[in-house]
Design a protein around this nucleic acid. Structure first.
Length: 443
RNA sequence: GGAGAGAUGGCCGAGUGGCUUAAGGCGCACGCUUGGAAAGCGUGUAUACCGCAAGGUAUCCAGGGUUCGAAUCCCUGUCUCUCCGCCA
């Protein structure tokens, strides 16, 4: 969400930047009228209220003196009616204005290339050697199922499509990755580990920008009744689509201390996504699941630090891939491919030999003050009397499921076994290769 | 799930219909005092919105209601605490 006064004072700029995102600037056409309507209604209503307050004080004085008060009582009653009408008018205009502003995506940073789709993203770097196998590279679902560590059929029986059951060394690999990533970020990159709730209320989802527009992408619990579109509650429950939501909302409605620099959190959580609208896409394997686990990086920074922190955070995510020896490239997303709340995003894409393609494994964004304004997260700049909105950033560091399958595909061997990257061996209790294993399945 | 008690400024806490945006204390900031510090004394200390400004409006958990007038009375909701039940 943008600052009202900023939009008012910079309408052409806002329209131009929205245009870059492919948003029709005529959306803002009603802004000026609505803004004027709102302001005049507020001014009038407040003038009347001031009169009413003065009369009420007078009433109290007369009452104490035992004088007649019937005239003033009648006057205030009449004023009250008029005031209420004007207030309703102001509230209506305010609501419309708010709805308009809340529906607009963040303005792209000037360094973001203009483009309509992912095809216009810019590759900024590539890292690592693409493996050259002397046997046909297989996709992870074949590798995992043959090793007995991934079971998609039974997961479908238990829960339905887009779930996976991990077993034995396969389950352990997931845990090893989580621990490896958390240790790296806490011990070498200065993040504080947090373990947030996996269910959040709708106010939190509004704060990070998922609500009200993207409700269909989320799982909603009906323990407090159905979701009424647009209604924000503090007591309903949604499954988190990413740890970004609970972690960014840690400081919702607070003023935090950034005098010593940024605050950095890392969190390992499950993530739940409805994947509505992705029917038939990535149906095989564990690329696109209703549930996956992710280690997330979140930063709260002063505005002047946020772009340097964005580069740092992205490097932190890249370091995970480099330590694991997984080839990747860094893409600077164009305006048309960025998420709703982001001002600038880098995607990290890992090489998947089984599919001969790069796939997104991390998305690192600077939201500037967009989320902070929605979630009301502020800080007091040194020497300033007024609190300002912080900048928030986050990135996957990394999505575990996709890291997992990248390891299966990049470290596969001719005999179907999978080597464990050196950095993970200590987390695998010394295991260096995953070989075929069975767990009660008739072989 | 049942019963009860609460929610007031950065913090503690007073306040049961008008003189309360809110006593008092703590904290913090500035000044005086001091060789320096502490103590002491004094002054100040929320946010948002409207307004060119003077100033005004709103906010005592949230939303409704009663009233000429609500922090205060009524209703609903949320959260916290205590006890009981159930439970990893």
């Amino acid at each position: 969400m943008y600052d009202l006064a900023f939009v008012r004072g910079n309408l052409p700029l806002v329209e131009e930047r929205l245009g870059r995102r492919g948003i029709d600037p005529s959306l803002l056409r009603g802004f000026s009228t609505l803004d004027a309507e709102r302001r005049s209604a507020i001014t009038e209503a407040e003038t009347l209220k001031a009169q009413r307050n003065a009369l009420s004080a007078e009433f109290g004085r007369l009452k104490r003196e035992g004088a007649d008060t019937s005239l003033i009582a009648a006057q205030t009653s009449a004023l009250k009616e008029k005031t209420e009408q004007l207030e309703a008018l102001a509230a209506q205009a305010d609501q419309k204005l708010r709805t308009l502003l809340e529906s607009l995506p963040n303005l792209p940073h000037p360094s973001v290339p203009v483009g309509a789709s992912e095809h216009e993203n810019i590759c900024q770097k590539t890292w690592g050697e693409i493996p050259n196998f002397d046997f046909p590279a297989r996709p992870h679902w074949e590798i995992g199922e043959q090793l007995g560590i991934l079971d998609f059929e039974r997961a479908a029986k238990i829960s339905g499509a887009r779930f996976v059951l991990q077993l034995g060394s396969g389950a352990r690999l997931e845990r090893a990755l989580a621990n490896f990533m958390l240790d790296l970020h806490t011990q070498e990159h200065g993040y504080v580990e947090v373990l947030p709730p996996s269910l959040v209320n709708s106010c939190s989802l509004f704060g990070t920008g998922q609500l009200p527009k993207f409700a269909v992408d989320l799982f909603h619990c009906d323990d407090r009744g159905p979701y009424i579109p647009g209604e924000l509650q503090e007591s309903d429950h949604w499954l988190i689509p990413t740890a970004e939501v609970p972690v960014t909302n840690i400081f919702r409605d607070e003023a935090i201390d950034l005098s010593c620099g940024s605050i950095s959190f890392t969190a390992y959580t499950p993530c739940f996504r409805s994947e509505a609208g992705s029917y038939g896409k990535d149906t095989r394997g564990m690329i696109r699941q209703h549930q996956f686990q992710k280690v997330e990086l979140v930063k709260f920074t002063r505005p002047e630090d946020s772009y340097a922190e964005h580069e740092a955070l992205t490097r932190h995510a890249e370091t995970v891939l480099e330590r694991l020896g997984l080839p990747y490239r860094r893409m600077l997303l164009c305006t048309g491919d960025m998420g709703f709340s982001s001002a600038k995003t880098y995607d990290l894409e890992v090489w998947l030999p089984g599919q001969q393609t790069y796939r997104e494994i991390s998305s690192c964004s600077n939201f500037e003050s967009f989320q902070a304004r929605r979630a009301n997260i502020r800080y007091r700049p040194a020497g300033a009397s007024k609190a300002e909105f912080v900048h928030t950033l986050n990135g996957s560091g990394l999505a575990i499921g996709r890291t997992y399958l990248a390891i299966l595909e990049n470290y596969q061997q001719a005999d179907g076994s999978v080597r464990i990257p050196q950095a993970l061996v200590p987390y695998m209790n010394g295991e260096t290769v995953i070989t075929r294993q069975s767990f009660g399945r008739a072989l």
